[in-house]
């Protein structure tokens, strides 16, 4: 019976090989070869240069800052939602998820409307005779876009850990002499760490690899590593170099994931996002 049903997985295994494994092998192959054939490490060596180092540094920096903002702004929000009574709580979670149902590009585009030179904010400033600000096409706009798009990924996992937390643990800590601050420091925060780590992973990963947000809100002059890949494949047509960067990015992220996974709650089923 069991051995029989195993064959049901075979069609999908074939699919996985064709559409997941082979493409990645192709990318790896391209990254290790010259444009006109022949094995080389040249594409990787090329990446180790100040120009591309700067791109990598900027990507990591912006993703890191966005993640910190998401955590600092999102944690209190998760606590507020988890502390609300049950009907209010469900409504708040729904309101938090709702914008995510709107197309990612439309959400990003909306910020262009707000931040633009003749945008809503500058018009409001102008109404009060205040000078217009350069809000769009800079690092700040890119970070704002990242925080806006990814903050639900931080709030929801932290919220779900906090909501599931055994309230008697908090009572027990108070019973043993801990005041509100100590309770947070020694009980609530350490116990919410699995949610925090999931949140950090789910914000940092898309932030470091995005190319849409820097393109639309950064105006293209702020190139991040995602833009670099996109450029190689769609303008420059240097697939070999593009493949090498993709492989580097993938290895970075999978290693980071593996490290993060070690700190996650071993009791949780792996892969649970909320």
């Amino acid at each position: 019976m069991r051995t029989n049903q195993k064959i049901l997985a075979y069609p999908y295994i074939v699919w996985l090989i064709i559409f997941i494994v082979v493409p990645l092998i192709l990318v790896l192959y391209f990254s290790l070869s010259f444009r006109d054939g022949g094995i080389t490490l040249e594409n990787y060596r090329r990446f180790i240069s100040p120009v591309y180092g700067k791109v990598l540094y900027r990507s990591l920096k912006l993703a890191f800052i966005s993640t910190v903002f998401c955590l600092v702004l999102g944690y209190p929000m998760a606590m507020i939602i988890a502390g609300a009574d049950i009907t209010k709580r469900n409504l708040m979670v729904l309101l938090f998820v709702l914008p995510m149902w709107m197309n990612f590009l439309l959400r990003t585009y909306a910020w262009m409307t707000l931040l633009g030179k003749n945008g809503v904010i500058n018009n409001i400033l102008g109404y009060f005779n205040l000078p217009a600000l350069n809000l769009l096409y800079n690092n700040g706009a890119v970070i704002l876009g990242m925080v806006y798009n990814f903050i639900p990924f931080m709030v929801l996992p932290i919220y779900s850990v906090l909501a599931k937390m055994d309230k008697t643990l908090i009572e027990a800590a108070k019973d043993l002499g801990a005041n509100e601050i100590t309770v947070f420091r020694k009980i609530i925060f350490p116990l919410s760490l699995p949610g925090v780590i999931t949140g950090i992973t789910m914000v940092f990963m898309p932030a470091v690899s995005t190319f849409v947000i820097p393109k639309l809100l950064g105006g293209g002059q702020f190139m991040l590593i995602g833009n670099l890949v996109e450029q190689q494949f769609t303008y420059v047509y240097d697939w070999n170099f593009g493949s090498a960067i993709s492989i580097i990015m993938m290895v970075f992220i999978l290693i980071a994931m593996a490290i993060m996974a070690k700190y996650e709650d071993p009791m949780e089923e792996s892969g649970g996002l909320w």
Partner: peptide
């Protein structure tokens, strides 16, 4: 093994999945 490969498109940056599929189709 199968589950780990199954996870790749979930964990991998979208751009890597996109680029690799594009490579496959063109190849």
């Amino acid at each position: 093994v199968v589950l780990n490969i199954n996870y790749l498109p979930v964990l991998n940056p979208e751009i890597v999945t996109g680029v690799s599929l594009m490579t496959l189709f063109i190849f």
